[in-house]
Amino acid sequence: MVAGVLEVDPAEVTDESGPETIPTWTSLRHLQLVVTLEEVYGLSFAFEEIRDVRSVGALRDVLRAKGTVPA
């Protein structure tokens, strides 16, 4: 899902991936990623979470804290 939103090869995406390592991870795509995750997992990110999440691993942590277990 992350790779699809960011338009990159899934093999390029790791837990350490973030705006600094994926050039297409712009602020716009960041929001689209968050909104997509909200839709898919049926949950909401707080403003602070949207602002502070800076990597795939951090996204996974937020999802896990909200009771979901992303693959």
Binding site: S27, L31, Q32, F45, F47, I50
Partner: peptide, 15 residues
């Protein structure tokens, strides 16, 4: 509408 979309990126509407 999604408040975060507008707050962070001035996107007023959802996909």
């Amino acid at each position: 509408y999604h408040p975060a979309l507008f707050r962070f990126a001035k996107i007023p509407y959802t996909e």
